[in-house]
């Protein structure tokens, strides 16, 4: 099957800064691709390059299996998008904006506008000028506009911004529905893992303009590392016992009182029994999973970038 998006060594350098460097990204047909990275990581720039709004300084883009030629516009008929802030002709009504969009896109199916408005639950206010809309409503309208021409590929840059929890819930459902019922491929960017973890099939992590990792969530959940966490007042004694009595090597001391044992072939009971027999005071001992959050945080931190600390704060 042909991939919806494939970039090879995609690069954008401005005179002073490298914004995007050698990004190889693949969005398979009919999947939701979560594009994760802190603010300023280059997510928007990559999406703009896919749309042709920004010209790459290196590498190439393939959409629907065809190489993107500068100046070509035909493929844009098959793409719906929401990049950065939702921009509208504010004096016109919501419906007029969607009609105008359909005219420019060359898509003439009247019902599709009603359908799109209904999907984002904006029916009833479509006759109001957009300038009266709140940010959340504009965001919804922008999503309605993007899907109103039944695209094959949706590029959504931080689509959850400004939405209330109910709206977020609605959008999640909508994205899944678009994928499952219409077979749309969706590229969603976000700086919050929790936002896209629930909908994405694949997650690509970008930081400092580099794609650090591209991983399918299914794969990730299967390979998620388990460990046993031991909290004790005498961590060094416990470490000694683990090495000498049990022959364990794969463990790590976290802080002063915590040990993480990654060798899971030794059962938890044996572990606690041996520690107690060797007079190590145990406060708690638990089996744990690495959360996705930790996984990605480690990865971004591993990339040795200051942005990582901002990511933690987000």
């Amino acid at each position: 099957m042909v991939d919806a998006v494939r970039t090879q060594m995609l690069t954008k350098h401005y005179r002073a800064a490298d914004v995007v460097t050698n990004v190889n990204l693949t969005v398979k047909k009919g999947e939701i691709y979560g594009f994760l990275g802190p603010n300023g990581a280059g997510k928007s720039t990559v999406m703009k390059m896919l749309l042709g709004l920004v010209r790459p300084t290196g590498g190439e883009v393939e959409l629907f299996g065809e190489k993107l030629i500068p100046g070509s516009v035909e493929h844009l008929k098959r793409i719906g998008h929401l990049i950065e802030t939702p921009a509208f002709y504010e004096r016109m009504t919501a419906r007029e904006n969607l009609e105008l969009h359909a005219e420019y896109m060359g898509y003439h199916v009247r019902e599709s506008i009603d359908e799109a408005l209904q999907m984002v639950q904006l029916l009833g206010v479509e006759g109001k000028p957009v300038k009266q809309f709140s940010l959340g409503m504009k965001q919804r309208l922008a999503i309605a506009r993007a899907i109103s021409t039944r695209p094959e590929l949706l590029l959504l840059d931080e689509p959850i911004n400004g939405l209330d929890p109910e709206g977020i819930q609605l959008m999640r459902g909508l994205f899944r529905r678009l994928r499952d019922e219409w077979g749309i491929s969706i590229l969603i960017s976000s700086h919050l893992l929790s936002e896209i973890e629930q909908v994405a099939d694949t997650i690509g992590v970008i930081d400092g303009g580099r794609l650090l990792k591209e991983v399918s969530l299914e794969e990730l959940r299967a390979s998620k590392t388990d460990y046993i966490e031991i909290t004790t007042a005498q961590a060094s004694l416990a470490a000694y016992v683990l090495t000498e009595k049990l022959g364990l090597e794969r463990f790590k001391q976290i802080g002063e009182r915590t040990l993480r044992v990654y060798d899971t072939h030794v059962p938890q009971e044996t572990l606690s029994k041996t520690l107690i027999l060797n007079e190590v005071p145990i406060e708690s001992i638990n089996r744990r999973h690495h959360t996705l959050e930790e996984y990605f945080f480690d990865m971004v931190k591993g990339g040795d970038n200051h942005a990582a600390s901002r990511q933690a704060g987000a």
Partner: peptide, 12 residues
């Protein structure tokens, strides 16, 4: 108004 980016992303 940033609507130019919108126009330039049309197949025109």
């Amino acid at each position: 108004d940033k609507t130019m980016a919108l126009l330039f992303a049309y197949p025109v």
